[in-house]
């Protein structure tokens, strides 16, 4: 078994029009910028994208949105230092937005990966984000029912990957990436380095390879924050 994918182009090639795509990262940290840019080059339309944010500046997720490829965004916080790309499209009614509290977003993705179709959380009870959702009382407290989130594809960023898809992460770049790896039918990870089986100590594996379909090497990945400080625009 070897899950190595030779190029970013091949890694995103299966993603077609109308696909639901989870994209890892929290802001720029852990965002698979190179995979997102390859997806822009491939150009599928009418995507539903799941990410914590709505992009910053004009690279990465913001660039994907700017290209008009995203029909719907599911996120917790569509504000950033430079949210103009998303904001303009949203106010023009050209992109649909589903706001989900951040912890609920994480748990819905985890539940999707874990085969749990719904769960109850205290979060959002009594607020407009709970409108229309079933409420139940447990031990005297009210909780809101939330449903799992799954995707056709997950594009994630990790630090090291082996050819079996086992992954490690770097610092706070972990965030949503291990959850999304579990919740998508096809998960591709961009990694700074690919090693043979045994190249990662089993004690250090964060995402076991069973959740990963492909790994593609990007030896020196760009940081969204640095690209934005340089005024970069993609494409």
């Amino acid at each position: 078994m070897n899950k190595t994918i030779a190029s970013l182009r091949e890694a995103v090639a299966p993603i077609g029009d109308g696909a639901t795509v989870m994209i890892g990262g929290f802001g720029g940290s852990g965002a698979p910028i190179e995979l997102i840019h390859a997806l822009i080059d491939a150009g599928p339309k009418n995507l539903t994208v799941i990410n914590n944010n709505a992009g910053n500046g004009r690279v990465g997720l913001a660039a994907l949105i700017e290209q008009g490829m995203v029909e719907k965004l599911i996120c917790s916080f569509p504000r950033s230092a430079d949210p103009k790309v998303f904001t303009d499209l949203y106010l023009a009614g050209k992109i649909e937005l589903e706001i989900v509290p951040q912890g609920t977003l994480a748990e819905r993705i985890r539940a999707g990966g874990a085969g749990i179709p719904a769960f109850y959380t205290p979060t959002s009870y009594g607020t407009e984000l709970a409108d229309g959702k079933p409420v139940a009382e447990f031990d005297g407290r009210p909780y809101v029912q939330e449903r799992w989130l799954k995707a056709d594809f997950a594009l994630i960023k990790a630090e090291l990957g082996d050819t079996l898809g086992n992954l490690t992460y770097r610092m706070a770049a972990r965030n949503f990436n291990p959850l999304m790896a579990m919740a998508a039918a096809e998960t591709v990870a961009q990694v700074s380095g690919i090693v043979p089986p045994g190249g990662i100590d089993p004690e250090h594996v964060i995402t076991p390879g069973i959740f990963v379909n492909g790994v593609v090497e990007v030896p020196d990945p760009k940081q969204e924050e640095i690209l934005n400080r340089e005024g970069a625009v993609y494409p």
């Binding site: 917790s76 706001i99 509290p101 951040q102 912890g103 609920t104 959380t121």
Partner: peptide, 14 residues
């Protein structure tokens, strides 16, 4: 404007 909740609704519980 643009709604944005982040983690606030989670943090107030727990």
């Amino acid at each position: 404007g643009i709604p944005a909740v982040g983690g606030a609704m989670d943090l107030v519980h727990g």
